[in-house]
Structures are given as structure tokens and as C-alpha cells.
């Protein structure tokens, strides 16, 4: 079975190849195989596979990668829209503030 890919041309991932130092950290942390090394620089090989988890941006020592981090979860979007922040599972805001999570009651999501 091929790789599962979501919508085309929608993710916010950006790579500034000019500031890339070639450490290949992004290729190590990406769980979707979005990056590959081309010579001494990283390159976005499969942009539509990006899930905006932010692992690459957080681990790039040069700040060459940027992405608006979030979780691709419709329930989280609905929870946020309805102002439900105490629900078992996630809301979009929780991820953006990255502060203390609300009382966790198990491995939801």
C-alpha cells in the first residue's frame, strides 16, 4: 500500500535552503518522510505529506524551517469553536499555547 496523503497544497511548511546547515535533523525527526538531503542541503521532497507537527522546526538548529503547528483533528477544531476546553480530548488552542494541559484522564486522541 502506498503512502496515505491528505489534501494537496495546503500545509504551511516553509524551508529556507539558504540558511540550512545540512545537519539532516529534519530528515530524522519527520515521521512522514517530507524532507530529503540533496547534496549538503535539505529539501522538501514531499510537501503534501506534511502534518504540521512541528518536529522539524523545533529541531532545526538554524531556524531554517517554519510551520504553523497544529493537530489535524476535526474534533479539536469543533471543541475550540464551541469553547469546550475541558473536554477529554484536545482543542486547537491547547496546542498553540503549549502550556499546562487540562486534567488529563488517560490516553485520549
Amino acid at each position: 500500500m502506498g503512502k496515505l496523503v491528505y489534501l494537496r497544497n495546503v500545509v504551511t511548511l516553509q524551508l529556507d535552503q539558504g540558511t540550512c546547515c545540512g545537519c539532516a535533523m529534519c530528515t530524522a525527526v519527520c515521521p512522514r518522510g517530507v524532507f530529503e538531503m540533496s547534496g549538503k542541503r535539505a529539501r522538501i521532497a514531499d510537501r503534501d505529506s506534511c502534518i504540521e507537527c512541528g518536529a522539524c522546526a523545533r529541531n532545526c538548529p538554524e531556524g531554517a524551517v517554519s510551520v504553523q503547528v497544529g493537530v489535524g483533528c476535526a474534533s479539536a477544531v469543533i471543541n475550540s469553536a464551541l469553547g469546550r476546553t475541558s473536554a477529554c480530548c484536545c482543542s486547537v488552542d491547547q496546542y498553540q499555547t503549549s502550556g499546562k494541559s487540562s486534567a488529563g484522564n488517560g490516553g485520549c486522541c
Binding site: 489534501l7 500545509v11 504551511t12 502534518i51 489535524g72 483533528c73 484536545c90
Partner: peptide, 17 residues
């Protein structure tokens, strides 16, 4: 709502959908 369970969706994509 299964997007949240899946491992290949992005927030930008989910909002668009």
C-alpha cells in the same frame, strides 16, 4: 472526525475541509 485519529492529516487541511 476520524482525522484526529489518523496519522496523516494537518490542521490547515482539516480547516480547509
Amino acid at each position: 472526525n476520524f482525522t484526529g485519529c489518523s496519522t496523516f492529516t494537518s490542521l490547515s487541511g482539516v480547516k480547509k475541509e
